[in-house]
């Protein structure tokens, strides 16, 4: 049997090489606390307890498996999906096997997808997972790429959050340097705002976003 061979590789920056070793479950700090403890708020008692700080982290080598083609294509600035040869359903994000019971897990075929679609729904994020806090605020959208039977998640840029609406047309763009991550694509509105939201609603959303922008500026010195 032939051994596995590496066809293409980008090694992680050396700064990540100590990632697993540095956080190794040692106690690196502690606190001894006297606080209010108990199962009911009306029967709390002063109790003394100890907290320890233990860092722990991991570098994953994750396989995209049968849908690897999608991520390879992103690096070539192409958007691809899959199509079931039996029922014709189109998947973007891709599925390697059809979802219909009657197609009996038929293997799908790769097709190129158009670079436009419809924004099905969206949210304006004012908080996020730790890895994405410095990007706030941003617009997360689910988009139906034309011809697809699934929606793909991504970010919408080029429009004020208060002007974004469901069912609007969007174009899909690539970042300058794709890295094989769904963040390699993003959405931009195809036309001007649909303006179905009232001026009052728009003003409210603007007010809600002000403290978020100030918080990010302060926290990340942006």
């Amino acid at each position: 049997m032939e051994p596995d061979k590496v066809i293409k590789e980008k090694k992680p920056d050396s700064k990540w090489s100590d990632w697993g070793r540095l956080g190794k479950w040692n106690v690196v700090g502690y606190k001894i606390i006297e606080g209010n403890k108990g199962p009911r708020s009306d029967k709390l008692q002063r109790a003394r307890y100890m907290l320890v700080n233990r860092p722990w982290d991991v570098m994953y080598e994750h396989s995209y498996g049968l849908v690897s083609r999608f991520f390879e294509a992103l690096m070539e600035k192409k958007l691809v999906g899959t199509k079931c040869p039996k029922c014709g359903d189109v998947f973007c994000p891709p599925r390697a096997h059809c979802w219909r019971n009657k197609c009996k897990l038929a293997e799908t075929e790769w097709i190129e997808m158009p670079m436009h679609g419809i924004l099905h729904c969206f949210t304006v994020l004012g908080f996020a997972g730790e890895a994405f806090l410095s990007d706030l605020p941003f617009i997360l959208a689910y988009v139906r790429v034309e011809g697809a039977n699934t929606l793909i998640a991504g970010r919408l840029v080029g429009m004020n959050p208060e002007d974004v609406e469901c069912d609007m047309k969007v174009n899909i763009k690539f970042v300058e340097h794709p890295s094989g991550n769904p963040m390699d694509i993003y959405f931009v509105p195809e036309g001007p705002p649909l303006n179905r939201r009232s001026a009052e609603e728009k003003a409210r959303m603007r007010t809600q976003l002000e403290p978020i922008r100030a918080w990010v500026k302060e926290r990340f010195k942006k």
Partner: peptide
């Protein structure tokens, strides 16, 4: 984690998008 979390999604965001629709 391949398609939804990786673009900055998390639960409040998913529920918010669903509620927006």
């Amino acid at each position: 984690t391949d398609f939804d979390f990786s673009v900055g999604g998390y639960y409040t965001g998913y529920y918010a998008a669903m509620e927006a629709r």
